[in-house]
Amino acid sequence: MPDSLADIAADFREASPQERLQLLLEFSDELPELPERYAGHLDRLEQVHECQSPLFLLVEVGGEPGLAAGDQRVDLFFSAPPEAPTTRGFAGILREGLDGHTVTEVLGTPDDAPMSFALAEVVSPLRLRGMVAMLSRIKRQTALKSRAAEPPSAGTG
């Protein structure tokens, strides 16, 4: 997984259970608002139904000329209400760890990366499913959008 995400995971693992919750709260507090172009347009984002609270996310894949699809930059946007801090915290971790990375790095993030934060024992495995679902939606959107940005190749459509 990208170093930035691995570093966050290490911070969580080294913290005591109570400190892990505080750390998650910091990620929740620091989750940025949607930029103007998406604010108030949740219909343009994808809802992650596996989360217990309404969480919407959107992936943007860069279109830098001359860069291979795998090297394009990925930007992540999230929206979740303040009364859903756990969901916001999960989103904050994924944003901090993956935003600004390349398509290849995002797609290379293991699906079970959410299990490496030692969060199951403090938030319960059931609740962690929301984070697993967020990561899978991020990877799916990244794959779809980077394919769409690629010049059509012959043969496979």
Binding site: S28, Q52, P82
Partner: peptide, 22 residues
Amino acid sequence: DEDVLLYETGHLPTALKLDWHQ
């Protein structure tokens, strides 16, 4: 709460948390 972190965001004075799942 349903959300395990909601208590940490701010709670009633003197209150403690009791989580249904944990």
